[in-house]
């Protein structure tokens, strides 16, 4: 007799608590823009003077020899270019979200290296929340654009659950047990359904035969026919349909054992 939860195949693994600044929590799947160390600084690629300058001077203005934030600036411009409305667009909601996304992903990379930078952590958390708020508004105002921006910036939007709370062992085990029991009930129902389907096949095949016999007999003795050809055709069609339907592969092997399986389980449960 099974008495405790350990006797069943219920295994509980406590979910890992993720910090809110983690990319898995913030919904960032990564941006597909390339920023190479050989790229020129923002706007310097348009400089006419730089085009016919010396190689060494050109090299001075590449990202390799510039402060780190220049790489971020270039990345931001490239990400903004994915969603920009017009050339002067710096203030539309999508551009703001794009700029925030670049900053968030830059800081996430930075904090992975420097874990103790608390100021950055706080700023990052606030920025993530702010972007989420912007996305929330965008969804409310313009749903299609909201979906478009999620695809453009490779983001995921998961709303916070209505019922928040901590994970507890007792609650989790209760839910898992419920899932387990529901699974057993569903399995039994599926098996029962398959059995009934099998019975239907025999039934409708027999029905066609019986109806045909009744019709023939009634015609033979000149009685008013109680069965029409239409009814026979409907039954025949149904029988053919059922024959075509093959029982689901994962269940078919269970049918011969269903009775034994059910009775055994019933005792143990």
């Amino acid at each position: 007799m099974a008495r405790t939860i350990d006797d069943y195949k219920i295994k509980w693994v406590r979910p890992v608590k993720l910090p809110s600044i983690d990319p898995r929590q913030s919904g960032d799947l990564g941006l597909n823009v390339s920023v190479k160390p050989t790229d020129l600084k923002v706007l310097y690629d348009k400089s006419k003077e730089l085009q016919d300058a010396d190689e060494i001077v050109k090299k001075m203005f590449t990202l390799e020899f510039q402060p780190r934030k220049e790489a971020k600036n270039l990345e931001r411009e490239k990400v903004i270019a994915l969603v920009k409305r017009h050339i002067c667009d710096r203030a539309s909601a999508e551009v703001k979200i794009a700029a925030m996304t670049t900053e968030i992903q830059y800081l996430q990379r930075h904090i992975a290296e420097q874990r103790r930078n608390i100021k950055f952590k706080v700023f990052l958390k606030e920025l993530i929340d702010k972007r989420k708020k912007f996305l929330k508004y965008m969804r409310r105002w313009d749903y299609k654009r909201f979906e478009w921006i999620l695809e453009r910036l490779n983001l995921i939007y998961v709303p916070q659950p209505k019922i928040a709370g901590k994970v507890s062992r007792k609650d989790a085990l209760r839910r898992l047990t419920k899932d387990y029991c529901d699974g057993i009930i569903q399995q039994k129902l599926d098996i029962f359904r398959a059995q009934l389907k099998e019975q239907q096949k025999v039934f409708f095949a027999q029905k066609v035969k019986n109806l045909e016999y009744i019709l023939a007999e009634e015609k033979k003795y000149d009685l008013n026919p109680t069965v029409s050809e239409k009814e026979i055709d409907v039954a025949r069609k149904k029988a053919e349909e059922l024959l075509k339907e093959t029982s689901p592969h994962h269940l078919s092997y269970l049918i011969p054992y269903a009775k034994i399986h059910l009775s055994k389980k019933d005792i143990t449960m």
Binding site: K11, W12, V13, P15, L150, Y157, V158, V167
Partner: peptide
């Protein structure tokens, strides 16, 4: 990407 169509809940088991 957009998970607003159904109810979300706090994950209770890591399977």
């Amino acid at each position: 990407r957009d998970f607003t169509d159904k109810k979300t809940y706090i994950k209770y088991s890591d399977d």
